[in-house]
């Protein structure tokens, strides 16, 4: 998977070019490699078994469903339905709580991510609610490169 990575290696900049550098939009990297930051919008991309169609977000040596060894890239539908969730109030240090961890059925491919742009309480988070993929900047490194994370927001 490393070979498919397109992240630019941040180049060292001379002080004199700082002003010009600031005027450019910062470099962006996806939080995980199955999030594709396309020019026409972000989407998730899975490794799909050519034999049975099972999808995996990480690399597989052989398909866990059928044993097939050939995979192709497949674009996951960006709209989905919330089929399970937990509202997390206790987490490891440094993680903002509460947050909504959601299990989202995106047209037959199940994704786990935070449900965002919704109050984190059971009155607002409803099973069966329609959601759509959304991205946001979750942090930046010392070179100013921004990390783009994804979540699902009410559609």
């Amino acid at each position: 998977m490393a070979a498919t990575r397109t992240t630019k290696k941040p180049a060292k900049k001379k002080k004199t070019s700082a002003t010009r550098a600031r005027s450019k939009p910062p470099a962006r990297v996806p939080l995980v490699d199955y999030l594709v930051l396309g020019a026409n919008g972000a989407y998730l991309r899975a490794n799909e078994c050519k034999s049975c169609g099972a999808r995996f977000f990480d690399r597989r040596n052989a398909c866990a469903a059928c044993g097939g060894r050939e995979f192709k890239k497949a674009r996951v539908k960006s709209r989905g339905e919330l089929v399970g969730f937990s509202i997390v109030h206790r987490a490891a240090p440094g993680i903002a709580v509460p947050f909504v961890s959601g299990i989202v059925d995106c047209g037959g491919t199940t994704v786990r991510a935070n449900v965002i742009d919704v109050e984190a309480d059971p009155e607002h988070v409803k099973l069966g609610m329609k959601l759509a993929l959304a991205t946001y900047v979750s942090g930046s490194d010392d070179d100013g490169t921004e990390c783009v994370a994804f979540g699902y927001a009410p559609a």
């Binding site: 987490a91 490891a92 947050f99 979750s138 990390c147 979540g151």
Partner: peptide
Amino acid sequence: GAVQSVDGLLG
């Protein structure tokens, strides 16, 4: 290929 810890970001 995560660049940050995903716990709390991806559920």
